[in-house]
């Protein structure tokens, strides 16, 4: 059974067709990229997969569960975590708290446990904190644990956001333009980070990215969308030489 099965996904915003007849399938551990020019509908696909929009048509089945009608936090609970194009950390909460709050789905205690600080509360909180610290240490962020994200450099904020998504213990990680706004040294770091995550976690990674350096280095399968429709898919070599892709990115060379 496929991990993620997207069939005939279509999304209209009023009269605009943002995504049309999109199909994709993840068998399990894969590193896939979704590329395309600006406004092609890439982020909309991510928003649909993470449950933020309800699709107009088509279905998204994750781990055998159809996500139609589910709230975003329920979809996240199934094992889909994501980052955002413009970093959306909680900027006035420490890095550690950012990671702790992201484990709300694994909270496992109620309001009464909280008020009376029951054994269950203490055990769960300890576990949440140790998971958070583990993730921070794994991504070499432990020294920033008590900092506020707004005071951190942009590259570190990106890593914190990835750490936050990872702490949810997802089976599918969606990265929405993780290299946007990073300098070349940070991009190198990001490539090795994503590679490291892929090697060390049992996880499928799907990324939207404009920087070909990142995509060609990491991904084994690439899908290209333009104006909401898939125009090509294949291995990095196939995509690089595909005339339709070149046309979508660079325009037609005939006059």
């Amino acid at each position: 059974m496929a991990l993620l099965e997207i069939t005939n996904l279509t999304q209209y915003f009023g009269g605009l067709c943002a995504v049309s007849d999109f199909n994709a399938s993840f068998e399990g551990r894969e590193l896939m990229a979704l590329i395309g020019p600006n406004g092609a509908g890439k982020t909309t696909v991510f928003n649909l997969v993470s449950g933020f929009y309800q699709p107009s048509e088509g279905s998204i089945v994750f781990g055998g569960v159809n996500t139609r009608g589910m709230k975003p936090h329920e979809v996240t609970g199934l094992g889909i975590a994501r980052t955002f194009q413009n970093i959306r950390l909680w900027h006035d909460m420490t890095v550690l708290d950012n990671i702790r709050v992201s484990q709300h789905y694994h909270l496992g205690y109620g309001v009464a446990d909280n008020f009376f600080r029951t054994k269950r509360y203490r055990q769960r909180e300890e576990r949440i904190e140790s998971t958070a610290m583990e993730v921070l240490e794994a991504l070499d962020l432990a020294r920033f644990a008590s900092e506020l994200p707004k005071n951190l450099p942009y590259g570190v904020q990106r890593r914190v956001e990835i750490a936050r998504a990872l702490s949810l213990r997802p089976r599918l990680l969606l990265l929405d333009e993780p290299a946007a706004g990073l300098n070349s040294a940070d991009v190198e770091g990001l490539i090795s980070l994503v590679r490291w995550i892929y090697d060390n976690y049992d996880i499928a990674i799907w990324m939207i990215e404009h920087q070909m350096q990142v995509v060609m280095n990491l991904c084994t399968w690439i899908k290209v969308v333009d104006f909401g429709s898939t125009i090509a898919e294949g291995t990095p070599e196939q995509i690089q030489n595909n005339p339709d892709v070149i046309k979508a990115y660079l325009g037609d060379d005939t006059i």
């Binding site: 993470s50 933020f52 709230k71 975003p72 936090h73 996240t76 609970g77 975590a81 994501r82 955002f84 959306r88 950390l89 909680w90 900027h91 006035d92 909460m93 709050v101 992201s102 484990q103 709300h104 789905y105 694994h106 936050r164 998504a165 949810l168």
Partner: peptide, 14 residues
């Protein structure tokens, strides 16, 4: 601080 991020990061906002 960010309701959308909260919902996506598994906080049952309702």
């Amino acid at each position: 601080q960010d309701e959308i991020a909260a919902e996506i990061m598994s906080v049952n906002t309702n």
